[in-house]
């Protein structure tokens, strides 16, 4: 029993306290405030909204763990979406076949990864600050996307890709399933692979890691490349969901993904943070916005409440740290 408890705790990690507490608080509060909260409808809306923000947050998570940031995620997703749209378009648009779609996805992921690769190379080899590198990449990709689309939408895709955005298997939305698979892959990557191990190490001290014989440049390049590839998956899901691609779709998610990471207990300086608490934090954010929706508020109020929640968690963490410190002094 005790062993099971310890295993669970090791799986969840100490980062779980903040998001876990917030999850409970949100569920209790909205169940009391609105009788419809604990219902299929709420589950449905959360399940369909979670994946886009969630996939982008996964893309943000890896760079944050290395002590960096990837501000280009949303536009990388857009550009990858554009790539897929272009492949579909040039293969017959609505009449494009599954193979064309497969190629479209492959190429989109390739383009997303390429944008990450460039950032990774610049960051690893010039040691420029990731905020700056990804910021300029963001401005570049936004410009590129607007240049290619002249600010308009691209639509007209084959009908069979729609389920990717709207369909369900066994009552579970397909985008949610894809997201959960990605969460598990990221969890596996971070806890069970050398790359994940080294991601945490360089997040805490890149020079000491290099002295230990780790190819830190390779780790950084891979981290940003994977981040870019994950953006591409988000871009494909967005394409299927909106049945169109527009540069600027999901732009407002950018800072929310950072917020979700911090809410999920990721250390802002890097080196610490787990996937599962971040996942819970994302659920909390979506429940909050669905709950607020139910009691008559709109998405904008939800955005504000997200900000307040982040501050509340940081303040609680600060107070808890202070309490521990005082206890240690007394003990």
């Amino acid at each position: 029993m005790n062993a099971l408890f310890n295993r669970t705790r090791a799986f969840l990690g100490p980062e779980m306290a903040g998001p876990g507490f917030a999850l409970l608080a949100v569920i209790v509060f909205f169940s009391l405030a609105s009788p419809q909260f604990l219902s299929r409808a709420t589950f449905g809306s959360v399940a369909f909204q979670l994946p886009e923000l969630g996939l982008l947050t996964l893309a943000m998570l890896l760079p944050v763990l290395t002590g960096g940031l990837n501000l280009a995620i949303t536009f990388t997703a857009n550009i990858a979406g554009l790539t897929a749209a272009w492949v579909l378009k040039s293969n017959g648009g609505v009449d494009a076949g599954p193979f064309a779609f497969f190629m479209a996805c492959l190429l989109a992921i390739g383009v997303g990864a390429a944008s990450g690769l460039v950032m990774g190379l610049v960051i690893a080899y010039t040691r420029a600050h990731p905020i700056l590198v990804s910021l300029s990449m963001m401005i570049f990709l936004r410009g590129l996307g607007e240049f290619l689309t002249r600010g308009g939408d691209i639509s007209g895709f084959p009908a069979f890709i729609q389920p990717l955005g709207h369909g369900s298997i066994l009552g579970l939305p397909i985008p949610l399933l894809i997201f959960i698979i990605c969460v598990l892959i990221w969890h596996l990557l971070l806890t069970r692979t050398k790359l994940g191990f080294n991601t945490y190490m360089i997040g805490s001290n890149i020079e000491a890691t290099r002295y230990s014989g780790i190819n830190t440049r390779r780790v950084q390049v891979l981290v940003y490349t994977l981040s870019g590839a994950m953006c591409a998956i988000a871009g494909i899901i967005m394409m299927a969901r909106f049945n169109s691609v527009r540069v600027g779709h999901g732009e407002s998610y950018l800072l929310i993904t950072v917020l979700a990471c911090f809410l999920g207990g990721v250390n802002p300086f890097g080196g610490f943070g787990r996937v599962i608490p971040v996942f819970v934090a994302l659920v909390v954010l979506q429940l909050l916005s669905s709950g607020l929706n139910l009691i008559g508020a709109n998405q904008h109020l939800a955005t504000a409440v997200w900000g307040i929640l982040l501050i509340a968690v940081m303040v609680l963490r600060f107070s808890a740290g202070r309490l521990k410190f005082l206890q240690r002094i007394k003990g």
Binding site: V258, A297, H300, G307, I308, M314
Partner: peptide
């Protein structure tokens, strides 16, 4: 105040207030 009083690093604090200010303004 958030940065000094609660030792929240500035990028975290201002991303939070970014959402608060903008969300409330739009609301």
């Amino acid at each position: 105040f958030l940065i000094h009083k609660f030792r929240i690093i500035s990028i975290v604090a201002t991303i939070a207030t970014f959402n608060i200010y903008f969300g409330l303004l739009m609301f």
